[in-house]
Design a protein around this nucleic acid. Structure first.
Length: 302
RNA sequence: GCCGGGGUAGCUCAGUGGUAGAGCACUGCUCUGAAAAAGCAGUGGUCGAAGGUCCGAUUCCUUUCCCCGGCA
């Protein structure tokens, strides 16, 4: 009875989710669905730590390379595509394995959260962003006191989004819903000690820097593609991606030295790993494991 | 050796005659179509050492040790 089972492998960056998931997929007749907000994009391979064809070892992978880095992707798009992929895998009587470190994406599948049906309106966002934050908060309080009460008033991004929902929907932001997920889910989290994690991040970074591979990748992303005068990914957009893409872009623009670039990627990756751990900590249903054996044992009982 | 400048939080530095702050780091946290994003909070210092003046010195004076420039 594999019908609606869903295995989830999560954990902080560099914790070894990829290797583990491929081993498990082989063992349990699975297919992998990525839950990574950067591996979604085409052309972002080395910097995002995307699996290579060779590493896949014949295991089908879904939700990689499904978006153009020039366009912004979002959780809702992810949710739709991932859900479809998972159901399709189940239909073929194989085990879907959701693998990644993007907590929000995982939550959108596992908890089936329902996000207000209001598409991002970038023109509106830009217009709103011209006002001061206190002004926006004031406006939100007036239009939707409930949402204003539970939102972080210091976070412009959230406040703008809340206003966007009200203005387009014409009614208050619905309280966060969740359509009871129909999956029988087993969530497995990979843990590493802080020291180990720092070490793994460092080793991985050195590897990515080898032969300028990662720097060339970012260069290639930014440079005009093709001969039709089509522009590549802007520096501004690369900045938005954070970590390797942000700091390599800054280095390529001569804003920081190579040494600074390396230091920043390292330290910011450590911060990122902590944020991921903080996020995952809230979900008490995650089974934390240290190695493959423990994971295998859990799955056998599942 | 002489002349300057400096020694204050893990780092870079601000500051005051009434026992001290910032940014970063560190720790914890938030998360309703950007989530590797965007935000929030907290810990932390016998103010280089020893004397002196003063009710009181990190701040003034003296000595001393160390660092950085310049001149020898």
């Amino acid at each position: 009875m594999i019908q609606n089972k869903l295995l989830v492998i999560l954990g902080p960056t560099a914790s070894g989710k990829t290797d583990l998931s491929i081993k498990l997929a082989k063992k349990f007749n699975g297919e992998i669905v990525s839950a990574d907000s950067r591996q979604i994009y085409k052309g972002m391979d080395i910097g995002s730590g995307k699996v290579t064809k060779k590493e896949m070892a014949g295991i089908p992978h879904h939700l990689l390379d499904v978006a153009n880095p020039k366009n912004r992707f979002s959780v809702v798009q992810y949710q739709r595509l991932a859900l479809k992929a998972i159901k399709d895998i189940q239909k073929r009587n194989k085990l879907p394995i959701l693998v990644g470190g993007t907590g929000f994406y995982i939550q959108s599948i596992v908890n089936g959260i329902v996000i207000p049906e209001v598409k991002p309106d970038w023109a509106l966002r830009e217009k709103l962003s011209k006002k001061s934050l206190p002004e926006l908060v004031k406006q939100l309080k007036k239009l939707d006191p409930v949402r204003a009460g539970n939102i972080d008033p210091n976070n412009p991004r959230r406040v703008v989004r809340a206003l966007e929902v009200i203005l387009k929907l014409g009614k208050p932001v619905p309280t966060l819903g969740s359509k009871e997920s129909s999956f029988i889910t087993l969530q497995i989290g990979v843990t590493k000690s802080p020291e180990e994690l720092k070490n793994l991040i460092h080793k991985r970074l050195i590897k990515r820097l080898k032969n300028n591979a990662m720097i060339n990748e970012v260069k290639k992303l930014h440079l005009p593609a093709g001969r039709h005068g089509k522009n590549g990914v802007s520096w501004k957009r690369l900045e938005e991606f954070g970590l390797e893409y942000r700091f390599v872009a800054q280095y390529l623009q001569d804003k920081i030295t190579k040494q600074e670039m390396i230091e920043k990627i390292q330290i910011e990756s450590e911060h990122y790993a902590k944020r991921q751990i903080t996020w995952f900590k809230r979900d008490k249903k995650i089974n934390w494991i240290k190695n493959y054996k423990e994971a295998e044992k859990l799955i056998k009982n599942y």
